[in-house]
Nucleic acid binder design. Structure first.
Lengths: 205, 205
DNA sequence: GTGCTGACAAAAATCAAAATCTGTCATTTG
DNA sequence: CAAATGACAGATTTTGATTTTTGTCAGCAC
């Protein structure tokens, strides 16, 4: 128990386990300390408040979502295939999480809800990845966009129903896969065609 | 007070007012009855449960959103202009509601949250309107889509961040207008170009 | 001295008793 | 007799007293 020294990492590992078992509402700092075999005062040496501990747990959870996506963003295959795969991987990861363990997903969702700053950073990271893919697509001559950053944000926004936890209730419904495909195909179509960002050249007449 | 006879309409009008003033949590059937100057038993003559009363209020609220949109859907101008205006009207209506009276908006959101069936019907109505516009666009030769229904659903989904209450917190942020324009432009672009629905003809490659 | 403890005050959560509300229905009213 | 009432049982919410938790910090231990 007291063999290893008490690090932030170790606290986070344990906190995650306790959170997983008890849910967010019933987890206290004292619980986490007890699970570690230390006094709760020690935890405040590593995290100034309980909320900051929650934020850190949320950040790790979000990182586990973002990491596999980063790989896709940094490959150098055809951008359109990577974009589709990136979006599907994101949606699929989220979907699996809810369907596998709704309880735990709800815990993390609540956690993330409160950790506004952490989520903002996460979204920035994801849109940066999208920007990279779209920029690659432009370099490859597959996409034609005025602003890759704006287009990336647009892609992220347009797919919000398939990755934002607020819509998780619908992810189990029968039609979602088809809905997802429609939206992704629209996105591909838009990026491949004229400017995906408010340039002067309006599509259609 | 007791001059008019007690109709469902009159109950709904009053319920809406009480809800507006007290919020959903603090509004009881007794409150509504008191505001009407009748006994609460009378209300159960028109609505079987408190929930059904809530549903009816939610339905009226949603109808007030859908009605102006129906006008746009039934015009016969150029579809792309109507689509853009339809989407902006929807987003703008929602946005005004939150910014004007967040308290009241929250009340209605909670109401709608619970009135699942009512919301489903509302969404069906809206996507039907979109289908009509897109079908018109196809007839006008402006849009090329394999399935107007699927495309309509795609358009609705892709703009979810701008009209779904779960995202209302962001509607006050500075960048949203630009974000909205990007997404709408992408949509126009996709509809104007190749099939907006999973046909065999993939965009790109 | 660095890292941890545990007692403490203030804040928040819990619990059970009391009050209120929902939904029913036999009775009253017009 | 159609429409409304109000007393009632069971469910839910409120209230306020009690317990638990958070976050601090003086001091202990290594």
């Amino acid at each position: 128990m007291s063999s290893e020294s008490l690090t932030s990492e170790r606290i986070l590992d344990t906190a995650e386990g306790v959170l997983r078992r008890h849910g967010i509402a019933k987890t206290t700092v004292v619980d986490v300390a007890r699970a570690l075999g230390v006094s709760h005062g020690s935890i405040y040496r590593h995290f100034p408040t309980k909320v900051s501990l929650h934020d850190a747990v949320a950040a790790r959870w979000l990182a586990r979502v973002a990491d596999p996506l980063a790989d896709i963003a940094h490959e150098d295959g055809p951008a359109d295939e990577r974009l589709r795969r990136w979006l599907r991987t994101l949606a699929e990861a989220k979907r699996r999480k809810v369907l596998d363990d709704p309880e735990l997903f709800h815990t993390y969702h609540t956690l993330a809800e409160q950790a506004r700053g952490v989520v903002d950073e996460h979204v920035r990271e994801l849109t940066d990845q999208l920007t990279r893919i779209i920029r690659d697509g432009a370099a490859q001559g597959r996409y034609r966009v005025a602003s890759p950053e704006a287009a990336a944000r647009g892609v992220f926004d347009a797919t919000v129903r398939f990755h934002h936890p607020a819509h998780s209730r619908e992810w189990g419904h029968p039609g979602v896969d088809a809905d997802f495909d429609v939206v992704v195909t629209m996105i591909q179509s838009a990026l491949a065609a004229s400017g995906a960002e408010g340039g002067e050249r309006e599509s259609g007449v």
